[in-house]
Design a protein around this nucleic acid. Sequence first.
DNA 1: GATAGCCTCCTCCTTCGGTAGGAGGCCAGA
DNA 2: TCTGGCCTCCTACCGAAGGAGGAGGCTATC
Lengths: 229, 229
Amino acid sequence: MHTLMVADDHPLFREAIAAVIEAGLPDSRLLEAESLDEALRHAGACAELDLALLDLGLPDASGLEGLRALRAAHPWLPVAILSADQERRTILDALDLGAVGYIPKSTARRSLLAALAQLLEGQVYLPPDIMRRSAVPHLSAAGAGAGAPMPGPRFAALTDKQLEVLIRLSHGASNKVIARELDIAETTVKTHVSAILRKLGVPGRVQAILAANDADLEALLAERHGPSR
Amino acid sequence: MHTLMVADDHPLFREAIAAVIEAGLPDSRLLEAESLDEALRHAGACAELDLALLDLGLPDASGLEGLRALRAAHPWLPVAILSADQERRTILDALDLGAVGYIPKSTARRSLLAALAQLLEGQVYLPPDIMRRSAVPHLSAAGAGAGAPMPGPRFAALTDKQLEVLIRLSHGASNKVIARELDIAETTVKTHVSAILRKLGVPGRVQAILAANDADLEALLAERHGPSR
DNA sequence: GATAGCCTCCTCCTTCGGTAGGAGGCCAGA
DNA sequence: TCTGGCCTCCTACCGAAGGAGGAGGCTATC
């Protein structure tokens, strides 16, 4: 027997959550709040609360302020964020403020149930697809000393020819097209592509393209051949 | 059949990990490294690596620098931290650098096994006892911004599900990964992908990704279904 | 001369991506 | 009630992609 609370200003979404819980956690009770104020009152009134699901778009709380307020008022209450925001940074900030989990609203119904079960068991839940994707260790928010850009993949390790191939790769060209454009055999293109993937530490051409799109490869290539080209 | 790597300079600890894996994950292979350098070499040599367990006390890497280096060299390798450090701040910093999990060395054998299984399934694992004990909020996060990128007209023809697939596609996910994340069969993903390619008028996933990267698909999806921020 | 790195090309093999065609279930509108 | 769109899943087939492993020619450096 668990008691949950969902704080979301969209009735439809609260109903959806209620349906999921009823179907998958029949032993549970659900409190509903449509504002931060109501959520705070519920949390104060109900001592049995096991988990609060907090939307980040509440009318009386902008962004993570609601989380901060709820945490400050009830430090013992586990709070998980429920949001349409899929920014990695937002998730990390929420954890920083003491959230025990983060559930994107785009989560599939079955995954949602699994996430709730995990949270009720005392575990931490974070969306795997967001936390595990690209997640390039670069830029911004947390200063923390040496803020050297530290270019992600090692484009500098690529040879000129490999750079030429990667540029065409990043434009979406197939091996066959690249072979024709560079006037070499397709097998040779494959050799170059394999070398590129190995040097960049990525598993396939798609990831190589995504990595390449963050850098100006033409500039790098031009720089190598001196200002005269 | 999974392949793991443990990077720790204490042979005893490596042996303990190996024993746990042998007992609980008999289908798995384990590579051992006693330095960051060796870990980097293993990661470069073994493409099948599913998960790296990185100690924060390596002799040739101080603290989270090892994680930064490993992430930079192999952005697509999931890395979980294995450390004696139980500071909440350290865990958050590790996540910031792209770690997919954090396992304190004080973890009980059974919990360790569960954590590894969870990580190998593609989930995120964090120590519940540390993450769930109260933390004092002291952060200012402003979610201002909200630029105005216009989603291309072609994307309007996509259904919600197709949009979900395309978003993950644009992050470089394979059909198999998308299937796992959306909890549907790979054949279904293929069906969706085919429909997407047809509607966008592009010949392959690579071109779809390049087209998708010019639009803010998450915003489009959020607008469609109950925009709660 | 020897060594090393790069570019070129090859074959064999496996996995991934994509199409074609079919099928059942669900749900909203006519 | 029926129709149509959407989601789901399947088999079968084929081409693209990528790894393994080898090979010859080129240039620069020691």
